[in-house]
């Protein structure tokens, strides 16, 4: 049993993290031309609006919620006067709102992807897998919010922090209900798969746009190190 837990909750996460890091580097070096959002708004705009907006904003805030709630230890919250019960209540209601938005959004996007002939025309198996994985991850997550009522602050949260700080303790996951386990395993899988999917566009968040000048000039300079690869 211990071995199983170690494999699933220590080895597997590190495998996924390694694939995540190395995979992004590999993809960026070998496939810069394929690195983009693969937007299909140009082909179908109407059904995209509710799905894309709900999903993206929902998932952005869900991510921020996860990062804040799981990576920051409870004692930091205690210091600011937020005890674990309050923390869980805040997490429940905010998670419900943004998680539902993301879930409804991703379902709308899935329906659009499967039914709209023009979106189908540009769809790849990779895109279907990506959106399917998102449905599972977000679906399990929202299921946990609504039906779970499990205190993750003393189990899942320290386990995640253990992985991030390279002091993993798989047995922290022992008492965690199955639906939570499905959620985290699916999430790690998606993380490991993401460098090979369209999800790489997350890393292209155009932050520099907010600071750069409007008009860009580039000068053709002969560079001995040849910045673009010749294949």
């Amino acid at each position: 049993m211990d071995l199983l837990y170690t494999l699933v909750f220590t080895v597997f996460p590190y495998l996924c993290l390694t694939t995540f890091v190395v995979g992004h580097g590999y993809r960026y070096v070998t496939d810069r031309f394929g690195w983009n959002a693969r937007s299909s708004e140009f082909l179908e705009k109407k059904a995209l609006l509710p799905g894309s907006v709900l999903f993206h904003w929902g998932i952005v805030f869900t991510f921020l919620g996860h990062a804040g709630g799981l990576l920051i230890p409870q004692r930091v919250f205690d210091f600011f006067g937020i005890d674990s019960q309050t923390h869980l209540t805040i997490a429940y209601w905010s998670g419900l709102a943004v998680g539902l938005a993301a879930f409804v959004g991703v379902l709308l996007l899935l329906r659009r992807r499967l039914t709209h002939p023009r979106v189908q025309a540009v769809n790849r198996l990779n895109d279907t897998i990506t959106i399917g994985a998102l449905v599972v991850v977000v679906g399990a997550g929202i299921f946990n919010v609504i039906f779970g009522h499990f205190n993750v602050l003393v189990t899942v949260a320290p386990w995640i922090r253990g992985i991030v700080t390279f002091t993993p303790d798989a047995m922290l996951m022992e008492t965690v209900p199955l639906s939570y386990k499905i959620h985290v395993i699916a999430a790690w899988t998606l993380l490991g798969f993401s460098p090979f999917s369209r999800l790489v566009h997350i890393w292209s968040l155009p932050l520099t746009y907010f600071f750069r000048s409007h008009i860009l000039f580039r000068r053709r300079v002969p560079t001995p190190w040849a910045p673009r690869s010749i294949r």
């Binding site: 810069r32 031309f33 690195w35 983009n36 959002a37 693969r38 937007s39 708004e41 140009f42 566009h201 292209s204 155009p206 520099t208 746009y209 750069r212 409007h214 008009i215 860009l216 000039f217 580039r218 000068r219 053709r220 673009r228």
Partner: peptide, 30 residues
């Protein structure tokens, strides 16, 4: 178009003013 590009993929060539899209930098923000 250059001013609108979030990725900074569009640029004007300094030497002759031709406006181009860097295909490897375009992320499809539209």
């Amino acid at each position: 178009c250059v001013a609108s590009c979030p990725s900074g993929a569009l640029y004007k060539r300094d030497e002759d003013g031709i406006v181009l899209v860097d295909q490897e930098r375009c992320r499809g923000w539209r």
